[in-house]
Computed example of a mutant assay.
Amino acid sequence: MAKAMARHILVKTKEEAEALKARLDKGDAFDKLARKYSTCPSGKKGGDLGEVRPGQLVKSIDNVIFKKPVRMIHGPVKSQFGYHLVHVFFRD
């Protein structure tokens, strides 16, 4: 069965997500931004979602993790929880 390792930052608005993505593009550390800004409990762990399998997360995030390129930051991705920036760093 497929699995991946991913982390994310969850915020309430698209504008917040875009501003954080710009900071990431300039070299800010993903884990530090996740700890400071993410509204998800995973933010305390730098946004780390651990090992993820298809169907474990909401469909919009699942699609990013299992269908988009690895080692890139994707987003903003909208879900019922808000806007996510998703970094997939391993997938098999």
Rank of each mutant, 00 (worst) to 15 (best):
M1H: 04
M1D: 04
K3C: 14
A4G: 04
A6K: 05
A6G: 15
R7Q: 11
H8F: 03
I9D: 00
L10C: 01
V11K: 14
K12L: 13
K14D: 14
K14V: 03
K14H: 04
E15M: 10
E15G: 07
E16T: 01
A17R: 06
A17F: 14
E18Q: 13
E18C: 11
E18H: 06
A19K: 15
A19G: 05
A19R: 09
A19S: 05
L20R: 08
L20N: 11
A22G: 13
A22T: 13
R23H: 13
R23Y: 00
L24P: 02
L24K: 06
L24D: 00
K26N: 15
K26S: 15
K26R: 12
G27E: 09
D28F: 13
D28Y: 12
A29V: 14
A29C: 03
A29S: 14
F30N: 11
D31W: 02
D31P: 04
D31K: 13
D31G: 14
D31Q: 05
A34K: 02
R35P: 10
R35C: 09
K36V: 11
K36W: 09
Y37A: 11
S38I: 04
T39M: 13
T39G: 11
C40H: 15
C40P: 00
P41F: 11
P41V: 10
S42C: 15
G43K: 00
K44T: 12
K45V: 08
K45L: 08
G46V: 07
G46W: 00
G47R: 01
G47N: 02
G47T: 06
G47W: 03
G47F: 03
D48E: 15
D48P: 01
L49E: 12
L49P: 10
L49Y: 12
G50L: 01
E51R: 14
E51W: 14
V52M: 11
R53F: 05
P54Q: 02
P54L: 01
G55M: 01
Q56P: 07
L57E: 12
K59Q: 09
I61R: 04
I61N: 07
D62L: 05
D62V: 09
V64Y: 12
F66S: 00
F66V: 01
K67G: 09
K67L: 03
K67H: 06
R71W: 12
M72Y: 13
H74V: 12
G75P: 08
P76D: 08
V77W: 06
S79D: 13
S79Q: 05
S79G: 10
Q80P: 01
Q80F: 06
Q80R: 06
Q80N: 02
F81W: 08
F81M: 00
G82C: 08
G82K: 09
Y83S: 03
H84I: 02
L85F: 14
V86K: 07
V88D: 06
F89N: 04
F89P: 07
F90T: 03
R91N: 03
